[in-house]
Design a protein around this nucleic acid. Structure first.
Lengths: 343, 343
DNA sequence: CGTTAGCACTCTACTCAGATGAGTGCTAAC
DNA sequence: GTTAGCACTCATCTGAGTAGAGTGCTAACG
């Protein structure tokens, strides 16, 4: 349990360190207007805070910097809430005023806005198709051998892939099957699509359709959902502006990781019970390369189900308050926009 | 005009510098098996080559490094052709053996393969829709107000966007118009789509359709081609491994530029008459940030028309021979694959 | 007893001179 | 035409000395 004065000092140290990136000495804290104590008193408290694990010293004769535990305490208890500035509110409002078609474009654009506003790296997770259902299915022949399969989801996303059509399947047959699919499988959740295809239509198709086996193979290909949510990254180069990453080798491992989509997917996928804004500080991220980074995430949702995430990656010495404020507003507004679009 | 010996020495210097990134001294050239001269002789030639502008000296007592002119001569006259190693051929072959659906995935995957193989940054330009034509158009209502417009091109690409439908337009009317479009505008090049919509269908529609104005607006939105070719980037972090970019500030300007899609589009769009492999060395790229970079590009095409580009960005001290070999093979195979798919 | 002034101590970062060595340019000899 | 030899240049490395920021401790103060 920290005393009020310790909290105040910890708060001051974290704030100052966030903006200066230099170890903070007792004198500079004492000189702040809001702390009415002499450097000596501050020093005593700092020694205590260090013993408790909230601060650390790069070396004996340097000032103190917050430890991970210190940041955690700051985020959990000290962050001044509601601190998205009016300028930022304006930018976000302007963003939503723009007319963008296709959810994908919105997310992509949001990634840019976020990284520009924060000067950190933004990582957004596109809407998950898992919770959406089939709106329309179509198989469009391109030439003798190939066709484009198009799946439109209930949220208006369009997935497409090319499939090969065995020559023995006739056009009319294909059409028949597609019509059957559209009449029977609309509104079925995408992840149930394949199983329902077999259970609901298998029998009927076997009766009416001649090349059952081959057709099923085609549909299998066509409905094979590439479950990968899309990752939208922006401002990766912003990492280079952080003084703690002025060493090329350190930043290389980070940027390398940022190109690994599966890793990012894992990091961003909403944690169980994780509602609202999540902050993962330093080693709380699973990856060693992110030991000196913090990731702040929020989710956007439709019908109360989390569809995707928006996240900001920066150094542990990050402007938590500002970023949390921005993410909070943006995620709320995104959710509102989706609800308005698709209801 | 360079003498045979000068060419040999220039070649040796460029080769050595490419692999070592250190200024090359006369002694080390002399010790190479293939040059049978003493350091003093080499030194004389080097002085001449410097006077001619092919070499430069970082400072008086250092070795020589190739100038832009030197690289240019190397690329134009000295590059050993056909130097894609067998290992690389294998990787490329394996890539084309994979079954990938959708052109987009192929390009994206190719970007990854390229950056992994070369350890440079790959920049690919997705297939241009400009030269493709309409295969199929569809307008799929989502709810009362919105619909998804889907355009399938002759190359099997699927473009989609959300449009708003004024309430006064009925479903049956929309269907009628879509059918009309599909019967009249199929095989029309995408870039002519909107003009033909007016010239060919305007009259007929005005007669048969009640809410002409509103419908036209919807179609306008739906056919508005986002002409942007897609950029696929991979291995941007590889820039950091280059010793010439160990300075964070320099590499920052480069990585920043790599996030500017329009700039990349401009850089990659095939130059007039540019057939085969193009090499832009240092300041030959328009952007100051790329003054110490070289960009090697090739194009892939369909029906003899260049559809898109594949490029590798690295330091001017780049393995030209290897990269040119790889790009040559990959672009040729991509072209072959597209021809095979869509003919 | 909590707070503060004073002081000795520690440790990094900076600077500067000297040493090192790679590499050149020039001259003279082969 | 080619090469050996040598003086010279200049970036890089090394180590000593210095400055300065900041601490911890002790003792005094209200």
């Amino acid at each position: 349990m920290l005393t009020e004065r310790q909290r105040m000092i910890l708060n001051a140290i974290v704030d100052d360190y966030i903006s200066s990136a230099e170890p903070i000495g007792s004198r500079s804290i004492s000189k702040r207007g809001d702390v009415g104590y002499s450097p000596a008193t501050i020093r005593n408290e700092m020694a205590d805070l260090e013993e408790l694990g909230y601060l650390e010293q790069p070396h004996t004769s340097a000032g103190r910097i917050p430890s991970h535990k210190g940041y955690r305490y700051y985020v959990d208890h000290l962050v001044p809430w509601n601190s998205a500035g009016t300028a930022e509110m304006g930018t976000i409002r302007a963003f939503f005023a723009e007319k963008l078609n296709a959810t994908e474009q919105v997310i992509q654009h949001a990634a840019m806005i976020l990284s520009n506003m924060t000067n950190y790296t933004s990582i957004l997770l596109g809407p998950e198709v898992f919770h959406t259902s089939l709106r329309h299915f179509q198989l469009l022949p391109l030439d003798g051998n190939n066709a484009v399969a198009i799946i439109v989801t209930s949220t208006g996303q369009v997935e497409n892939r090319t499939v090969q059509i065995p020559p023995e399947i006739s056009l009319s047959e294909m059409e028949k099957v597609v019509n059957l699919l559209n009449s029977k499988l609309v509104n079925v959740p995408l992840y149930k699509l394949k199983s329902q295809l077999y259970s609901e239509l298998g029998e009927e198709m076997q009766r009416h359709i001649s090349h059952y086996e081959e057709l099923m193979q085609v549909l299998d290909q066509a409905l094979e959902s590439d479950h990968d949510q899309r990752i939208y990254l922006s401002g990766a180069a912003n990492m280079l502006t952080q003084p703690e990453f002025k060493d090329v080798d350190k930043v290389k491992t980070i940027l390398d990781l940022l190109e690994e989509t599966p890793t990012l997917l894992k990091m961003l996928s909403p944690v169980s019970g994780g509602t609202g804004i999540q902050v993962r500080i330093g080693t709380e991220n699973k990856h060693e390369a992110f030991a000196h980074c913090s990731l702040i995430t929020a989710t956007y949702s439709l019908d109360g189900k989390a569809l995707g995430s928006i996240g900001i990656l920066g150094p542990t010495r990050m402007e938590y308050a500002r970023v949390m404020g921005i993410l909070g507003i943006l995620s709320r507004d995104l959710t509102a926009m989706l609800a308005h679009w698709y209801k």
